[in-house]
Nucleic acid binder design. Structure first.
Lengths: 207, 207
DNA sequence: CAGAAAATGTAGCGCATGCTACATGGTTCT
DNA sequence: AGAACCATGTAGCATGCGCTACATTTTCTG
């Protein structure tokens, strides 16, 4: 006997008035996402997060069923927030690779975007190590970033340039990683690469 | 009472005939380094490594005193091996950034160098997350890489270029990371960047 | 109001970790 | 031979983890 698109008419228990498990689920997800953006992914242990939230691990697992699903929900939430953020930064004309790189490297340092960069770089690094469930998320993140980058670059007559978006993403991630591992080591990289990507303009004030 | 450069003459117990703790220490270090280069850093747990080596955790801690010191010894050994490897690849004239980038990206794919790249990228990624003792090693590794890169690039009359070596290292690490996290995503990046770094030569066969 | 169901507390299991205390052969020196 | 010492085995501790079983409280409904 199958009920498809056919709920029991009156006694719908999935949505009670106050309790509303789903609402608390999304609220918790949002709270954790905010914490993660402020304090990094850490080890994402349910006990530590629960203490940080003033709850018990028991409750987190009650709402998320499993640690892995909790992580996925949180990363999804973070991804959504970044999408909205990037949408606001996706105005104006498409840029050349050099211009775009300068723009995005500056963007990565802005207070509202920087936390996302750090978290995503961390996700990618964990994915690179094969950690679950970060590995699958990392692949999605890479794909999403490259699609966004391509959408912001001047289209080429020859169709999609194979390595163009991936090159920019590599540079951004590389700088992110190095800067996190060895602060100050990437000073001057943005300027160097910008000058290299776009041909040097004639100095107007040169003798 | 201080003994400086003055050992007890005959009864030297630090170096017995067969036991020779130091020798076993270095032998174990070498074995672990080889394993790590083949199978990645993993979680570097003493129990797992001991099982992998056919020993007990008890013995590893006997020779290394502490897990952290074991990790440091192993990473030092790996660093040494890479130094020797790179010394062999440091012949010939210094190159332009574009040439060097192409060269080093090809090098990173060679069977003998690739394991080192993966391990170092992992070390840097862990260091970026603040993991001990990877963080301190990561800083050293970054410094060493940049010094080597600078030593292989054509020197500039204007002295050291601020972001040049760091830019190349960022690109290499970024590609390494992205390729590990999402295999195949960086196809074409090397070619794209090489063409960008060195001005496009006139196509001889163009109409 | 009674009972069902949802939300939460308490306690614990099983596992893995780094590390240690103690005992015990085996070798070497006096 | 006896003593000292090195190398190693066995067992365990304390901690942290994800997760679960059970009991309890709270809330909603018939």
């Amino acid at each position: 006997m199958r009920y498809i698109f056919c709920m029991k008419p009156s006694t719908d228990r999935t949505r009670t008035a106050r309790g509303d498990k789903a609402a608390r689920h999304t609220a918790l997800t949002a709270e954790i996402a905010t914490i993660v953006l402020h304090e990094g992914l850490g080890d994402m242990s349910v006990r530590a997060l629960a203490a940080r939230l003033g709850t018990s691990d028991r409750m987190l697992l009650y709402y998320f069923t499993t640690r892995e699903q909790m992580i996925l929900a949180v990363l999804h939430e973070i991804s959504d927030r970044l999408s909205h953020l990037l949408a606001g930064h996706s105005t104006g004309p498409r840029l050349s690779p050099g211009q775009f790189l300068t723009r995005v490297l500056a963007l990565a340092h802005e207070a509202d975007v920087a936390p996302f960069m750090q978290v995503w770089t961390d996700v990618i690094a964990r994915g690179a190590r094969g950690m679950q469930p970060y590995d699958s998320v990392a692949r999605d993140v890479v794909r999403a970033w490259m699609a966004w980058i391509d959408s912001r670059l001047t289209p080429l007559p020859t169709g999609a340039q194979p390595g163009r978006a991936a090159a920019i993403l590599s540079i951004v991630e590389g700088i992110s990683l190095l800067e996190a591992a060895s602060p100050g080591s990437t000073t001057g990289v943005a300027a160097y690469l910008a000058a290299l990507s776009d041909p040097a303009p004639p100095r107007p004030d040169s003798p």
